[in-house]
Design a protein around this nucleic acid. Sequence first.
DNA 1: CAAGAGTATTTCGCATACGAAGTATTAATG
DNA 2: CATTAATACTTCGTATGCGAAATACTCTTG
Lengths: 176, 176
Amino acid sequence: MALPHFEETEEREAFDRIVETLIFLYTESRRLTKEQARAHELTGPQLTVIKLLAGIGELSLTELSESMQTRNSTVTGIIDRMESADLVKRMRSEEDRRVVKIRLTPKGKALAKSVPIEPMALFRQALEALSPQEARTLLKILAKLEKSVRDSLGGELRPSADSTHDATTNGARTKP
Amino acid sequence: MALPHFEETEEREAFDRIVETLIFLYTESRRLTKEQARAHELTGPQLTVIKLLAGIGELSLTELSESMQTRNSTVTGIIDRMESADLVKRMRSEEDRRVVKIRLTPKGKALAKSVPIEPMALFRQALEALSPQEARTLLKILAKLEKSVRDSLGGELRPSADSTHDATTNGARTKP
DNA sequence: CAAGAGTATTTCGCATACGAAGTATTAATG
DNA sequence: CATTAATACTTCGTATGCGAAATACTCTTG
């Protein structure tokens, strides 16, 4: 417990800078995604929905909300607006009538093909500045942080999110 | 240009996971900050404002919005609500009458002292799981990413943000 | 010093984003 | 089989968060 005071302060500064930079990267990527999506009459989250559905075909509302790391009530609104714009349609599941399946309409599919932008493209592009070695190291450290966060959150986490890594996330994986 | 196809795919996967994890860390930290702030009748951004002002004393609206990495119009609303709650007060600057200076009220100061939570506390706490070596490496890689993003954004960035590192950010630095 | 360019904030409309409560449906329990 | 618990969504109210336009003021130039 007798850590030199100097190093402790230095570490605090480093932590501050890490948090700061992380917020910058996230915020700026999001902002640019939104701006680019706007050129195609879409919002950021709507672009994410389109890319997710184009890759997978059909998702329930809950699957969508988990992939996008938001709550169901948020996605309900997004899908409402996309349905009004005829980009997407809702269908009740046959097996479980509580479930709503969401699919692209022809218009939605056409749009998915014509829009080249990936969600969080800015961030992806920035990653190419890293050497493969650095990318691996970054991933390893982030995974450790993720584990630490999940442990400290304990039971508070959304149920599905704690298994492996299949939450497809905002970063719409075009081909699963 | 003749990279083995295998490695290229692998790298894409790694990029996806990095983006995914980053979003997870940001989103979950934000969510918990909000939840904890609520115990003190505050929202997440309001907590950030309070911690920033408690550390520095007085900030203009633009300084606040840069520190929080949001737009002026967003902060106007946050300050409106905080002013209604008597947590903060607006004062016109003497030197430049366009500028609005924002300060804590006595009630705001009291609250700042009684609330132990730092914004993004979850994320800060997770950082302690890293070794000093890992923290240094993470910071270095994130800095590289930040530079890459700033370069590709070019002139699009908010003017003040490209100087050094004084943007205090969401991660309210209590003592400047 | 007057006209125009530039800056700081606000206002407005819209789209997330969240939690709490409500509804419909399915599963679990006795 | 009837309750009760659990799950999937929706609805509602509130708070961001953003860009575009308006307002008020300051700085430049001629």
